[in-house]
Design a protein around this nucleic acid. Sequence first.
RNA 1: CGGGGUGUAGCGCAGCCCGGUAGCGCACAUCGUUUGGGACGAUGGGGCCACAGGUUCAAAUCCUGUCACCCCGACCA
Length: 488
Amino acid sequence: MCAKAEQKEFGQGIADQETDFPQWYIDVVMKAELAEDAPVRGCMVVRPYGYALWENCQANLDRRFKDTGVVNAAFPLLIPQSFLLKEAEHVEGFAPEVAWVTHGGGEELPEPLAVRPTSEAIIGPIYSRWIQSYRDLPLLVNQWCSVFRWEKRPRLFLRTAEFWWQEGHTVHANHEECEERTRLMLEVYRAFLEEELAIPTIPGQKSESQKFPGALRTYTVEAMMQDGRALQSGTSHNLGDHFARAFDIMFLNEQNERVYGWTTSWGMSTRIIGALIMVHGDKKGLVLPPRIAPHQVVLLPLWRKDEEKAGVMAAVDKVAATLKGAGVRVKVDADDSKTVGWKHNEWELRGVPLRMAIGPRDVENGTVELARRDKPGKEFKEYPTIESLAERVPQLLDEIQRNLYQRALEFRVRNTRHVADMEELAQAIEERQFADAFWCGMSDCENYIKEAVKATNRCMPLDQPGDSGPCVVCAMESSVHAIFARAY
RNA sequence: CGGGGUGUAGCGCAGCCCGGUAGCGCACAUCGUUUGGGACGAUGGGGCCACAGGUUCAAAUCCUGUCACCCCGACCA
């Protein structure tokens, strides 16, 4: 009795979101069956429900990429050591995280093979063969794959040794087009996160110390989690001619001169599922934006007597068909070994936007009971007629989508503060906020902040107000706003 | 790499201090009663107690060592 009451009070036995956010996060991942630890240290198993989420992300992103002219291909998992060594900054940046294959076919290999931590070093040599003429440009290719980085401190979805992502690799004839593509893909990410995942982000440029190893410039979309920490949710790199020089990516231009190409790379990973959880989740678990939810509506049939079952199921089938016809993703949970209370809790934990109970009473009245995930509680339940559902449900799904975005945006705005000096910055970080500060651009000042308050420079937002003021550390006049926060 | 944990049934755990037939809850299977916000009864199946040594008549339990994983840090485009 006590144990049961406790379990009810604390949702499905998940940790309290307010007081133990990290444990709450792990509990949600595990209990919503999104992922679990694999038998290999630092690796995860993405379970079917988590993978369904990722597939929806993939399908949508893939369409957005293709709308900009990108095509897909697949490149090798293994990279010869000599390839990886060709770009100095790149190898230096990734060396500590690379896993090596040293044996094959029962023998030691003449040259070790790196398990790709990212694929610039294997794609570079391939592109160098593919590109001969300016007519071959731009080259716009993406691949969906997993990569491997030996992480010291793994966290499910946020930082695992193996993770799934897409990496786009493009080549351009000049720096202008290269920069344009870099920014275009950042914008694709921003729009995807906002429109599909209902996650507001701050698009910005990374500082020198935070940029991708080997890049000329790195852009990022930074999102605020409910614990006030930042999550880099997608990145787009202007690689300049660095990798073209390292891998001999050259072409003959219209003046018949042999010149280097200009490359970009950009990636978004399963990490965004972590962002979904931490941006929208609540004390009862996951809250999914309708546009990305594997099931948008779950139907819960219920009856007392056997003779009621046929009537209820007929109504359920009819409603399911109607909703599917209206383009709604519907799941019928007719498992009669579980009570309706159990099901409500289960589907709340899994974040389904709408739960629709249909019983004998509803069959009689021609109505359903509709509960929305973003506003839990009896007062938000409604009882629309079956006839109205084809119209009402899509309308509600849109409303939920908008509500989730709006509330995430308000949360971030409420928790972002402009700070004038280190004292204010420290206070903002302590209160789990984003600190918006003038920054002189020097690494020394960044590092000072990092050591003083454990906050890193997340980005210099693209949207700059245009005013100026003293650097938050050294007081040198600057017109650059930067966002400082604790990060995952 | 530091600090702290944990390895016992599919999952979650108790048992260990004080050695003596390996247990509980959930899940699973069958049957019955149930069903509008986490139902109940009966019966049943399921174990290399992380691994390796040692002590002992006897080890999940004591001793020594090893391994693995998790959490918190450090690090992390």
